[in-house]
């Protein structure tokens, strides 16, 4: 085995892992606050990627810049989804919640299929082909930028929750819904904001990985699944867990692709999932009792 290749895979996986972290933070935030698993998470990312793609193709806006437009749009999408759909099933049995979210996923996929067709699309941005050489190792500039921005946004989400008044209200409502109502927090509004922020996270992640992967309407489920694995690995509802878990899965998949066959990279993440469920079902940073 070539050592350079291994280090290369390690770095590549680490960088992509940062973006995975951001996706998983969005999922974990939504789950942590509302106890709802957003099975349309990957599809929201797909929609964000299409918006980014068309901003790039039609208006020549670089995906990194277009975050400024995509993030608020996807926030709004998430906000409205919570307000008009999720809110109605917040107290429903889990199965009903899952069905609704899967339904939303199917609608979004078919909407994309209907509007943009099934073709693969690739956005060749300014940085698509540029790379930094370090010794014998190449570092993809797009990945580096994606990683950097993903980290900045993640830290931003942490600070938002820790320091701002709205962030505290979100944590309060996540902790104790009745208590939050009693002190006069508008819980429904706080839920909608949380769903919006969680969606914006995955939306930004979508804009960041657009230059890295081919875009088509079907890419949602595999990202929903990956981020779900990350959230289980890190501990349901733990944002720090989602962050660390994202990096771990990014590296593991990338190493798996090199050491095994690249089509087997998911084998690695699912193996990790099984091991975690067997030996530490609460995840790395989760607590045992609900």
């Amino acid at each position: 085995m070539n050592l350079t290749l291994l280090i290369q895979a390690l770095i590549g996986g680490f960088l992509v892992g940062g973006v995975y972290s951001l996706i998983a933070i969005g999922l974990s935030l939504i789950f942590g606050v509302m106890k709802i698993i957003n099975f349309a998470h990957g599809e929201i990312m797909m929609i964000a990627m299409y918006i980014t793609y068309w901003l790039f193709v039609l208006l020549k806006i670089d995906p990194i810049i277009s975050i400024i437009i995509v993030a608020p749009l996807i926030f709004l999408l998430g906000y409205c989804m919570q307000r008009f759909l999720v809110n109605r099933i917040i107290d429903a049995p889990e199965l009903i919640q899952i069905l609704l979210m899967l339904g939303v996923a199917i609608v979004l996929t078919n909407l994309a299929l209907f509007i943009w067709g099934p073709d693969h699309r690739m956005a060749a941005t300014r940085f698509s082909l540029s790379a930094i050489m370090l010794g014998g190792i190449t570092i993809d500039v797009s990945r580096l930028i994606a990683f950097g921005i993903a980290i900045i946004v993640s830290i931003g989400v942490f600070l938002f929750l820790a320091k701002t008044e709205t962030g505290k209200m979100i944590r309060a409502a996540a902790d104790n819904r009745l208590g939050a109502q009693i002190v006069g927090i508008k819980v429904n509004r706080v839920y909608a904001i949380s769903f919006g922020v969680g969606s914006a996270c995955v939306g930004i992640a979508g804009a960041l990985i657009l230059p890295l992967i081919p875009l088509d309407p079907y890419l949602g489920p595999s990202y929903t699944l990956t981020s779900f694995i990350i959230v289980i690995l890190g501990g349901m509802g733990s944002l720090l867990g989602a962050f660390i878990g994202g990096i771990i899965i990014g590296v593991a998949e990338s190493l798996g692709a090199v050491l095994l066959v690249s089509s087997l990279k998911e084998l690695v993440s699912f193996s990790i999932l099984i091991v975690i469920l067997l030996f530490r079902p609460q995840g790395l940073f989760g607590t045992r009792n609900e």
Partner: peptide, 30 residues
């Protein structure tokens, strides 16, 4: 409840219903 708190009625519920993962200070702020 939102409007009623605003009007000057405050409820200390049975079972306390605190926010366990918030600090005492943050609980009071809320």
């Amino acid at each position: 409840p939102f409007d009623i708190v605003e009007m000057g009625i405050s409820h200390v519920p049975e079972g306390r219903q605190l926010f366990p993962s918030l600090t005492v200070l943050e609980n009071l702020e809320m």
